[in-house]
């Protein structure tokens, strides 16, 4: 166990050289790298922290905006819903009114149609009845319907009541001409008979105006201002019409029930 003093000195020198070399090539660069990394990490952490803070601020701001937006949206939605409800009610009311108008119009049209049909039916019935009556009267009494009509009309004039006569007279004196309408053109003989019958009530010197109205189907009508005396099949046919109309409504009522 000897000590070699040259080796001791050499090893001291070796060690010192190694210390210098290791300082240069190991500790310095490694510690420097660690320091730099730590600085970098610290910077990154600080950056991250600032970003987090910034993000928090932005998040708060966003939240605030979001809340405000939600409130605004709710308010608007409430407003729009209210408006829509009002508009819906308005449209509904308008539609109801329109529907009522259309219904009314439809009813009117239906009524008009019904009336038109009734009128046509009446016209047709009158014509048919007149034709049948004409034929029947001519075949049965050997005289035509016009003659019979005139006879009945004259009889009616003669059988006028005192009250009606007064009315007739007053009305005639108020006006100037006496209009006699008939469904057919009256022959001279019949006109004369009528004139005679009227003269018995009103007296002579009367201006007569004989007119023909095919719409009347059959009958005679005496018209002066405010007074009207007539006889025609229309009265009978009107009764028939009423009877038919009531019988026509019967099934409708049954359906309604």
């Amino acid at each position: 166990m000897q000590i070699n003093w040259f080796t001791v000195v050499a090893q001291i020198l070796n060690f010192l050289i190694l210390v210098w070399l290791m300082k240069k090539y190991l500790y310095k660069p490694i510690l420097q790298a660690i320091d730099e990394r730590e600085k970098k990490i610290a910077a990154e952490l600080a950056d991250a922290k600032s970003k987090v803070a910034k993000a928090k601020i932005e998040q708060d701001e966003f939240q605030k905006k979001n809340d405000a937006f939600d409130q605004h949206k709710k308010k608007m939605m409430d407003g729009v819903t209210g408006d829509a409800e009002k508009e819906r009610q308005k449209l509904l009311d308008a539609a109801k009114t329109e529907a009522a108008a259309v219904k009314h119009k439809l009813e009117e049209a239906s009524k008009e149609l019904q009336e038109s049909l009734n009128e046509q039916f009446l016209q047709k019935t009158q014509e048919e009845v007149l034709s049948i009556t004409k034929k029947a009267l001519s075949e049965l009494a050997s005289t035509n319907l016009e003659e019979q009509t005139v006879h009945v009309f004259i009889r009616n004039i003669k059988a006028i009541s005192a009250k009606d006569k007064k009315q007739f007279t007053d009305a005639f004196h108020a006006g100037s001409a006496l209009s006699i309408k008939s469904a057919f053109e009256l022959p001279e003989k019949e006109q004369k008979s009528i004139k005679t019958a009227i003269a018995e009530v009103l007296g002579p010197d009367i201006k007569y105006a004989f007119e023909t109205d095919p719409k009347m189907v059959s009958g005679i009508e005496l018209v002066t201002k405010g007074y009207k005396l007539s006889w025609s099949f229309a009265a009978y046919i009107s009764s028939l019409e009423k009877s038919m109309a009531s019988s026509a409504k019967e099934p409708l009522k049954a359906v309604k029930k």
């Binding site: 000897q2 000590i3 001791v8 090893q11 070796n14 060690f15 010192l16």
Partner: peptide, 11 residues
């Protein structure tokens, strides 16, 4: 080697 350990101890 005692020389080395002595050198280190002297250091």
């Amino acid at each position: 080697s005692l020389s080395t350990t002595a050198a280190l101890a002297i250091a």
